[in-house]
């Protein structure tokens, strides 16, 4: 099985890195949105209780989540294309297992997740953001970025297997952005004035992914924020992985 996963992972990584149309937007758009947010919402740091005097530092967590949302699209579209073109049938005629397929298929977005994490960190630091966790925090940050890519990648895989076509998977993109906007993306949860918004943000798991990343930039090592960030990432990933495995049994109908 390791051989199968390795072969499929290699294909997934090659395919991801050879599609500039997938690669470039997922690297550039989050940085553009971060720049706009930082420029327009800088005054928010003057609100009493705001955790940092640099909105850039506060906002630097957002690209990591946006990158995750791109993972849904990238992982899902690639698998949906395999279903549509019959490539999945080619794979189904080999002794490949379902677990190999899903694991291998995720490799591309995981590698991309690490690349994105490194680029966002470097761009952020060059632009003047703080990174309180220091050098020791870099591997933790990349591990959390990886976990977030895993979570969203599993959503993409599940969606592709369930829906079976690329357009439908792409349709999830705006839906997931709603989750991002209804989180603690723009303000810390305790500073959100509207009760309903605060409640939604509190129940929205995306808030905890953002806060996990954000804690490394603002607080250093906040055990609770990191535990919640990793915990929710893995919980989302594993839940959708299980759902994808169940759906795969229907999709990969071999006798």
């Amino acid at each position: 099985m390791a051989l199968q996963i390795g072969a499929l992972a290699r294909r997934s990584v090659n395919r991801t890195l050879r599609q500039p149309a997938q690669l470039v937007p997922s690297l550039v758009f989050p940085l553009i949105l971060m720049a706009i947010n930082s420029a327009g919402l800088g005054k928010a740091t003057e609100i009493p209780g705001f955790p940092t005097d640099s909105y850039l530092t506060f906002a630097l967590a957002i690209p990591f989540i946006q990158a995750g949302i791109f993972s849904v699209s990238n992982a899902g579209s690639d698998l949906a294309r395999d279903i549509e073109t019959g490539f999945l049938d080619r794979l189904a005629l080999t002794p490949m297992t379902g677990l190999s397929l899903v694991s291998g298929q995720l490799a591309g977005v995981l590698v991309l997740g690490v690349i994105q994490g490194v680029i966002y960190l470097v761009v952020g630091l060059v632009a003047g953001a703080d990174f309180e966790a220091g050098l020791a925090g870099v591997p933790v940050l990349l591990a959390l970025a990886l976990a977030i890519s895993f979570a969203f990648g599993c959503i993409g895989i599940f969606a592709a297997l369930r829906l079976g076509n690329g357009e439908a998977v792409q349709g999830l993109f705006p839906v997931l952005f709603v989750f991002l906007f209804l989180s603690s993306m723009a303000l810390p949860r305790d500073l959100i004035e509207q009760d309903w918004f605060q409640t939604v943000a509190t129940y929205n798991p995306v808030s905890y992914l953002i806060e996990g990343i954000r804690s490394l930039f603002i607080d250093g090592f906040d055990g609770q924020a990191l535990a919640l960030g990793f915990g929710f990432s893995l919980a989302i990933g594993l839940a959708f992985l299980a759902a994808a495995s169940a759906t795969l049994r229907t999709r990969l109908t071999r006798t």
Partner: peptide, 30 residues
């Protein structure tokens, strides 16, 4: 499946991989 090979309608290939990479994938999966 151990005994058969199949080339189904519409050669299902990955446009982003080379011919040799397809072969590498197929030999590994088999």
């Amino acid at each position: 499946r151990e005994q058969i090979g199949a080339a189904l309608q519409e050669a299902a290939l990955d446009p982003f991989l080379t011919g040799r990479e397809h072969m590498r994938l197929q030999t590994a999966l088999q």
